[in-house]
Design a protein around this nucleic acid. Structure first.
Lengths: 188, 188
DNA sequence: GTCTATACAGGGATAGAC
DNA sequence: GTCTATCCCTGTATAGAC
């Protein structure tokens, strides 16, 4: 995620992301970002109007790239259960490949900057919504509100990701079991 | 939570909690805390050695009070399913009664200050562990690692709480359904 | 125990030369 | 586009009187 460092703008964004992931927003000062990129502080303001807007731009880019990465791993013609598993693993793999990006997302989400910003990508919600609606129509999935079902999909996944990125080495069987448990929470 | 305002120390802690909940850690400056309590900035340092230690003290107090509140709502002699539901509702009610305390906990958890600090109360984990172990022995609950099962208990609950405190009005049936879904994710 | 006053550092942001 | 220099503000923390 955010791995194209060919432009100065992108290098600034990546530096901001890494600093926030390492030591939080308080540590991601303009001085620190300038030092990490090798630029002067003044130069940052040629690329972003303010520090806050830089942080928001990073978050938007992050959401977009995670969404694209997940799209690539998903086959819409598979069975419901397989689509469910593919989506779960799509999110899992996307974030597992970039711990700093994951931590940035978590911290941004709890920061006041998140207020105006949507938490997840639009297309992403549509993706999950389609899965739920197909499953309800097939009589497989509980007729519950979308936000109840979502609460049993993403949050447990995020919780396990946090542990993975904190050093926990999940067994493949645990991953499978987690997908099963999520599926059990959704189905009749 | 943190509602005993009889001492200056407690009033400082509550002010810090409220400020962080309202606008994040960056807004909880010594000046803001002093203003909110009606004290002088210098006085804060007669009660806490540093601002960081104040924040940590608030978090510890919070964990302790949530734990006690949950203990009060739990009957150890009930059925497994009932104990499960009581625990779920215990956490739910504890945080629902104090939105600011909940938000403080979330923000603290994503801040670098959380690094050294345990996320949950010790007695709390023991409580959940007993539930799981009894359930596995009874052949009711899946023989999965504790951290997998926990991922399907607290994170969905927290997710629904966040929505509730953001203004969403959950139907009683949704709460019941959520507890059922969590139970389904745990059981064979 | 609480106040006033202040030291000191570090933060975001801008001006203007190159 | 980038750098240097600098402004101005705000933040934490301390000293010392009351």
């Amino acid at each position: 995620m955010l791995n194209d460092l060919s432009t100065t703008r992108n290098r600034i964004m990546r530096a901001a992301l890494d600093l926030v992931a390492e030591d939080g927003f308080a540590a991601a000062t303009t001085a620190a970002i300038a030092r990490k990129t090798g630029l002067a502080e003044g130069t940052l303001y040629r690329h972003f109007p303010s520090k806050d807007e830089l942080f928001v731009a990073v978050y938007r880019q992050l959401k977009q790239e995670v969404f694209e990465s997940i799209q690539a791993e998903t086959r819409p013609d598979a069975s419901l259960r397989d689509r469910f598993g593919q989506l779960w693993l799509g999110v899992w793999n996307a974030y597992l490949s970039d711990a700093a990006a994951f931590t940035y997302g978590q911290r941004f989400g709890e920061s006041p900057l998140a207020g105006s910003e949507g938490v997840a990508h639009e297309g992403f919600y549509r993706h999950v919504a389609a899965l739920m609606s197909d499953g309800k129509q097939a009589g497989l999935i509980k007729p519950l509100p979308a936000n109840v079902l979502r609460a049993f999909f993403f949050p447990p996944l995020i919780s396990m990701l946090k542990q993975a990125l904190a050093g926990h080495d999940w067994a493949a069987s645990d991953i499978e079991a987690a997908i099963d448990a999520a599926w059990d929470s959704w189905t009749l």
